[in-house]
Simulated scan of single mutants.
Amino acid sequence: MATALYQAKAEFFRMLGHPIRIRVLELLQAGPTPVRELLAAIDIEPSSLSQQLAVLRRSGIVTASREGSTVVYALAGGDVADLLKAARRILTVLLADQNILLAELRAAD
């Protein structure tokens, strides 16, 4: 049923709907990253990062592997990076349009 497909898509976008998860995904675009480096880059409590990484892991969007005592996270595939790049392009256009409107408002005063 098509409704199930739309529900699955909505769940996927909800999973992405957290600033920390987006930041993690952006950091992982550079390649596999140990948890300690993610913590240093994001500057949040380890328990909060762990919680957000668990959501990403359960969704299958990231993978985790152990290298000795270090856990290293990576994007599960290149499509995630493509999605983040598309989102940046869309936001760039939207924000540019907002800046144009803001300039017009200021000029009208």
Rank of each mutant, 00 (worst) to 15 (best):
E11A: 14
L95P: 03
E26A: 04
G31L: 04
L28C: 02
E26G: 02
A86L: 12
R88M: 12
L28D: 04
L49M: 00
A40P: 03
T33R: 00
A74G: 02
Y6R: 08
A54D: 11
A103P: 00
E26S: 07
M15G: 00
S69K: 07
A30S: 09
Y6N: 12
V80Q: 03
A40Y: 07
A40W: 01
L38Q: 00
V72Q: 00
A10H: 09
A87K: 03
F13D: 07
L84A: 11
D82Y: 12
A76I: 00
R14D: 07
E67D: 06
R36A: 10
V55M: 10
S65A: 07
A103D: 00
G78V: 06
F12Y: 10
K85Q: 12
T63C: 08
G31K: 05
I44N: 12
F13V: 09
L83A: 09
G17R: 11
D97L: 15
P32Y: 00
E45A: 02
A108L: 06
L25N: 04
R66N: 15
R36W: 15
A76D: 13
S59K: 10
H18A: 08
L102S: 06
R23K: 04
G77K: 13
L94K: 04
A8W: 12
R106N: 14
D97K: 00
T70R: 09
E45D: 13
L94R: 11
A76M: 01
A74S: 11
S69C: 14
T63N: 08
S59R: 10
L102Q: 15
V55R: 06
R66I: 13
A81N: 15
Y6P: 11
S69L: 13
R57W: 08
V24D: 02
D97F: 04
I61R: 01
Q51C: 14
